[in-house]
Amino acid sequence: MTRISTAPNDRGPAAGNAVEVRGIVKHFGSTKALDGVDLTVREGTVLGVLGPNGAGKTTLVRVLSTLIKPDAGTAFVGGYDVLRQPKQLRRTIGLTGQYASVDELLSGYENLYLIGRLLDLSSKEAKARATELLERFSLTEAAKRVAKTYSGGMRRRLDLAASMIGRPRVLYLDEPTTGLDPRTRNEVWDEVQRMVADGATVLLTTQYMEEAEQLANELTVIDRGRVIAAGGIADLKAQVGGRTLQVRPGHPAELPEMARCLHDTGIATATFSADTGLLSVPLTSEDQLTAVIGVLGTRGFGIADIDTKLPSLDEVFLAITGKPSDRPAAEDAAPSLAKEPVA
């Protein structure tokens, strides 16, 4: 049995792949958290793993961090096998997640110093590295305070700093902005972009299409432990539909006329809703956005407001699978409805 499972391991990861996952399966009891996941992250790129709650994103990150062992399949990170070389692998990764956390009763500085020492930095190096990262993540003033007193955004920044102590070649960011307000979310995004600019390879899990578009080069969409779509951001957007331009006219009565005008000039197909007072124009390129605004402007339509919107996770799933994403909720609802007539 070991022979069968180790045979494919002997083929190492392809050159240039920082992360290579092949057919990873993980069960929890009768639930299949991961059901044969394959993916690769090229060195120096950011892969976004997009999926709803319970899709298996966190399980995947836990397998790739050696926190849990897969039931089948192989995975390499930085050239190391998750099963055979866990210790070496741990030296090449950094992890920021909702679960792998800093110690709330230690100060920001002490947290970073501790991790430096556990990564075999000398006392002097660990001090220097902690100070450097606190500075970089704008935590110098809070360095001596216990992490318990930090705001949500500061906590996340400390988490990010903690994951970077050992200058990891591969960073896992497991839903790094879930639960953060928009301002703090932007702070975290800025930091991630800086890390990427410095050459880090990142595997990012998220529930937000917007986050994936901001940060990732490539996207893998998973649902119920399976990859249901993968490719470049542009490819996927072409598949699920890209941004939608929303125009709020100065005079709502002009909505039908605006739509007709865009249709007649052949620039775009617009729909409008009298209820919301919005004109919606699906966009395939930035040129198209300019053209639409240009045409509406030259025709003398008054525009009160414009906005562009990415498809939500639900819309992405609808486009890929033809079904909405939150099926677990629907399943929960079904039995309770079935019970009602009995009671």
Binding site: L67, L95, Y99, V102, I115, A162
Partner: peptide, 10 residues
């Protein structure tokens, strides 16, 4: 989750 952090360290 502190233990998980330790477990991802070598």
């Amino acid at each position: 989750g502190v233990m998980d952090r330790f477990r991802t360290l070598p």
